[in-house]
């Protein structure tokens, strides 16, 4: 296990809020995520998941409240927080006109890795993500499943203790999704905390704990099994509909 914070919390949010004009996207969010957890952050479209993740990643300033990532307050230690997180969004954030290797080199560069370190890490990641044969291919020509693994590679480049995945498997077929989750488990087994959002309720089942967000607030929080029992739900899909449905 990687040493994280004294408190053992990878992510902690306290009354974290974000307003856009008179619309409150995230409403006083309180959340503790333990180091090493695979935490599923669920909610309907527009429930505030992406806004919350963006605040935790330092892309967006909170309107009120505070959050700690790896023990560091995001309001004052934004840059330090960025070194400790890996981020992968549903849009992947890859340059389609660059080759696979060049994408990794670029992101390695902006994380301040020197060229020897980038080269070593690149080889290691390509091997692990089963992308070695795609090294020189233009990223734009890759199938979605490959891009998705490459985006994960980018997020893992600097060996962050915490990984934020915002709908990482959207639009990807079941085979690629399962392969992707195998990778997530591997990463988590090494002690990395995984904070993930998804619309696939079968994936929610893969998480250690999940929260379900409705209109900017967390309406349910616990392990999939305990939540299903609590709400008398058959499966996660059923649970989700029960919690989100009015």
């Amino acid at each position: 296990m990687r040493p994280t914070t004294e408190s053992g919390l990878a992510v902690r949010a306290h009354h974290l809020s974000r307003r856009f004009g008179d619309f409150t996207a995230v409403d006083s969010l309180d959340l503790d995520v333990e180091a090493g957890e695979i935490f599923g952050f669920l909610g309907a479209n527009g429930a505030g998941k992406t806004t919350a993740i963006r605040m935790l990643c330092g892309l967006l300033a909170p309107s009120a409240g505070e959050a700690w990532v790896d023990g560091l307050p995001i309001s004052t230690h934004g840059e330090a927080v960025k070194r400790r997180i890996g981020y992968m969004s549903q849009r992947f954030g890859l340059y389609d006109d660059l080759r696979v290797g060049e994408n990794l080199e670029f992101y390695g560069g902006i994380y301040g890795l020197d060229s020897a370190a980038i080269k070593a890490r690149r080889g290691e990641l390509l091997e692990r993500l089963d992308l070695s044969q795609a090294l020189d291919r233009p990223t734009g020509s890759l199938p979605l499943g490959y891009k998705q693994r490459l985006a994960l590679g980018v997020a893992l480049l600097h060996r962050p203790p915490i990984l934020f995945l915002d709908e990482p498997t959207g639009g990807v077929d079941p085979v690629a999704r399962r392969a992707f989750w195998d990778l997530i488990y591997e990463v988590a087994a090494e002690g990395t905390t995984v904070f993930v959002t998804t619309h696939y309720m079968d994936e929610a089942e893969y998480c250690g704990r999940v929260s379900i967000m409705v209109a900017g607030r967390i309406q349910a929080l616990g392990t999939p099994a305990s939540l299903k029992a609590e709400h008398g739900a058959r499966d996660m899909q059923d649970l989700f509909l029960k919690v989100v449905g009015t």
């Binding site: 549903q90 989700f240 509909l241």
Partner: peptide, 13 residues
């Protein structure tokens, strides 16, 4: 053709 990709479970239902 994949009409509900990226849509949340409630809306998909």
């Amino acid at each position: 053709d994949e009409p509900t990709t990226g849509v949340d479970p409630v809306s998909r239902q």
